[in-house]
Amino acid sequence: MSGAIYRQSTRRRLLAAGVFALLALLPPVLQAFGQEFYISFAARVLIFALAATSLNFIVGFGGMVAFGHAAFFGAGAYTVAVLMESGVASAAIAWPAAIVVAAVLALGIGFVSLRTRGVYFIMITLAFAQMIYYLAISMKTWGGDDGLSLAVRSTFGPLDLKNDATFYWVTLACLGLCLCLLDRITHARFGRVLQAIRENESRMEGLGYPVLGYKLLCFVIGAAMAGLAGALIANHGQLASPNLLQWTQSGTLLVMVIVGGVGALYGGAVGAVVLLLVEEVLAHYTTHWHAALGLILLLVVFRAPKGIAAWVHGLFARAEKHE
């Protein structure tokens, strides 16, 4: 029995490795077809995949529906931009700094917010994100509404991030590392306790687990990864924009998570890829594409109630049963 599960998870990991290998091949393939432009687009999709994945860890595994993830995403971006402004261009300093800033912010916000649950938690996280948004646009030194632009991309050892393919690979590596880390965490004791808390919080509390501490740590880990995604998006567009801090950004990330599949490891990534690709295709045909997107989202709610990742999972599981 456990052998079967083991085989299954090995197979899944192999599959994941295969997908990543294919993704790594994307830049030369696009180049060969003369579609270099899409390398940059793909990098943007991967960054949103990372941000959505980090939110999914909080929502899906921690059971905390946070509606202020933009705060951490934006904080990462602004950290890189502010450091760049003061002459620190090295990714080795700026990117970890972005992670730390987002994590510290999450520690404070999470500490206050975790007293509430459900819709109250949704709204209190939104409140904190809104505070940060309004502070950012009123700060002249942070460029206010214009945001802060980066003169160059971060320096990254011998790698030239200005090259779109290189940047894409670095982003892919970040996403891969974070997914591996989350895979480890969710299968480790911490992750199991976390999921048990999600299922029955009072029982775990009764068993003597420091529930609040577990949830807070989960919140901080998710935020830290969003900080990294923020550092990447600032580099990608060479801009830290207040747009990244807006509540609509939190909403977009949440929609990605729900579309992809809450609680599935790859749910956030799948959601980001699907949503951005659909946007890209629809916007090509009509300026009224919002309506078409709305219809597609309704379809997802009613046809794939647990998200696309779970839906695909189901297809695989059925296929495996047939073997």
Partner: peptide, 18 residues
Amino acid sequence: HLSQVLATFALILIANEA
């Protein structure tokens, strides 16, 4: 709640375009 959020968000998009 999350499904509700997604579905009613979709309704916002459709209503705005309409």
